[in-house]
Design a protein around this nucleic acid. Structure first.
Lengths: 346, 346
DNA sequence: TTGTACGCGTTATCAA
DNA sequence: TTGATAACGCGTACAA
């Protein structure tokens, strides 16, 4: 087992100085053709590669991007990562991932670990717990120390930084308008508690769409699910809540759900109650993942274009990192949502 | 925007030497109570944290693990990552992710980038193209340079390193036995071309199970799909191939598919042909992802316990990294598969 | 054409 | 009790 070869070792072996080796490898004209060839041959033989860590230390930049997301086993976040990764690699950056598991403290710890020199900047989506506690000091601290942040999807307005979002309320409107166009009169929404920013915004879009059509919202048609129910272990409880919604609103003929799981569960309940989709009740979800595509019937959804979000976020971050002038001009990029019509609507 | 504070700055500010500061912060008994307090207070005020990169350079270890996987938008791989991440973080390691996109060259490039000092060791699953070309020099090179590798799921026997696998052929047997027990007489397998190791192994398990029950395999019941068809863009072609399978085997009453997508597509085709599941035909898939759980009917699958695979892989790697003696004793850990019975079987 | 010295941020060793 | 120095690996300005 031979260690990675360094400049020093090559220098010693060839009986020249370290800097000669360094220059020779970088094809400096200062070095004679002769020694250059010799050094390069030797380096090739031993498969020399400059040590990234040493370069990072010297250049005071690591060429790696830190990503903090709440959860990786999630189609949307995976898509975003793959978008970030694609752009990052193309521009010579690596990607390091930290998971917050929706926990505030894990988010803070993870960011601290990475902020101490491991990365050049962050791309992140905020943990639910952080949104709930509204404690954002770790973001302000990080930014103050000169490390840029790009937030996506779940963002916080108070923090000044680049952001990539989808227009959640607009996307929701798109969905609800579609349901109305398809003849639905009593449309329910299955959303999350309000502190989850996207849940709140999508609910707003739902209300706006109703208002635009002069339909007055009914409280009983608005279900704000406790988000613990998103976990795999509480599927039954989620089902029960949604079944209540159905039972309390016998005339319901449309459902807009703020994520795939809620939508699929709604379809399941409907089926159980003997309702036909889309004949008796139409369903639209948010987030275009595999579940929607392969559901039966295939689910009409609002697509967020996760990969594009990731790409854009990476671009913003890297542009910022490589910008010469140190001006703080922050952008908020809105990625268009798109209604993907499938079989769960008429 | 103030830069991260360094020992040097603290030293200058307090008019002491760098090493005094360093020692004071590490509670060295060499330092007087007085200066220790002073330094610590100052450090706290300015939120001093040692620079990871400098530590890495000095200690010649980075405390980060490199992961190379073919694809992240995939429930199984996401699960594995979350398992790795959990163990890694608990033991003070970070995780850096590279995607090969099933491409040989991307796999090589990604590994080269990370191997040059950025990480202490690899956890990886091999790209399909690499399996096809059977060019493994980048693995041997890496290992030779003293950087340990742990392979999972898609492994290659020729390389000496730790491995975490599921017993693919045993899992497949489990599934096919179940189908036989449930009364199936004509069981098809939908697999991949043989160069994909797991496809080959699962096919072997299928054949073994048949043989155990003295059922002679029929060539027409064995479909080896071109794996480009796994991509989202070729769903229609996949469907067509599977439909042919059904048409050519009218008496087929069971299907074992080596992944979720093939299984779901089989169910779709069955439905299209008017076959009832599980009454007319029973289906079992491999990989227990979200698709299986939320399919209609819910799919019986062989679960690989992806998270556990990741955890085990991380353990093996870190144990290796932190082992004092430099012995090369490599383990191959087999994670038990488990048959999760749902509604697609009787 | 080649080599020396310095600095990136730390820590360990040894000297004061 | 404190400080100077070397070392980790690299690149570069400057000296020889």
């Amino acid at each position: 087992m031979k260690r990675k070869v360094t400049l020093k070792q090559i220098a010693k072996e060839l009986d020249v100085s370290i800097s000669t080796v360094s220059k020779a490898l970088r094809n400096s004209i200062e070095i004679s053709e002769d020694t250059r060839q010799k050094v390069q041959a030797f380096a090739k033989l031993y498969n020399y590669r400059p040590n990234n860590i040493a370069l990072s230390l010297k250049n005071r930049k690591t060429k790696t991007i830190g990503i903090i997301i709440p959860e990786i086993v999630h189609h949307f976040f995976s898509k975003v990562i793959s978008g970030i990764e694609a752009v990052a690699n193309k521009r010579g950056y690596n990607v390091i991932v930290g998971l917050s598991n929706e926990s505030f403290s894990k988010e803070v710890i993870n960011m601290e670990m990475l902020a101490n020199g491991s990365i050049d900047g962050f791309i992140l989506s905020i943990a639910k717990e952080t949104q709930q506690q509204q404690d954002y000091h770790h973001f302000t601290e990080t930014i103050k120390q000169g490390m840029p942040i790009v937030m996506f999807d779940r963002v916080v307005n108070e923090i000044k930084c680049d952001k990539v979002i989808v227009d959640d309320s607009e996307g929701a409107k798109l969905a609800v308008n579609k349901l109305i166009d398809c003849g639905c009169k009593n449309i329910a929404i299955i959303s999350t508690k309000d502190y989850v920013s996207v849940g709140k915004l999508r609910t707003q879009g739902y209300l706006d769409a109703l208002e635009d059509h002069k339909i007055s919202p009914k409280a009983s048609l608005i279900l704000k699910v406790h988000d613990q129910l998103l976990s795999e272990d509480h599927l039954d409880d989620l089902e029960k809540e949604i079944e209540n919604l159905f039972q309390n609103n016998k005339n319901m003929d449309g459902v807009f759900a703020v994520n795939e799981l809620y939508a699929l569960t709604a379809m399941k309940v409907a089926r159980k109650l003997g309702l036909k989709i889309p004949e008796d009740i139409q369903v639209i979800g948010f987030t275009d993942g595999v579940l929607s595509k392969h559901a039966v019937p295939a689910l009409t959804t609002v697509s967020q274009h996760g990969k594009k979000i990731g790409e854009k976020a990476a671009e913003l971050l890297i542009n910022n990192l490589e910008r010469e002038d140190e001006e703080d001009i922050y952008e908020t990029v809105v990625i268009e949502t798109e209604l993907i019509e499938r079989e769960s609507t008429k």
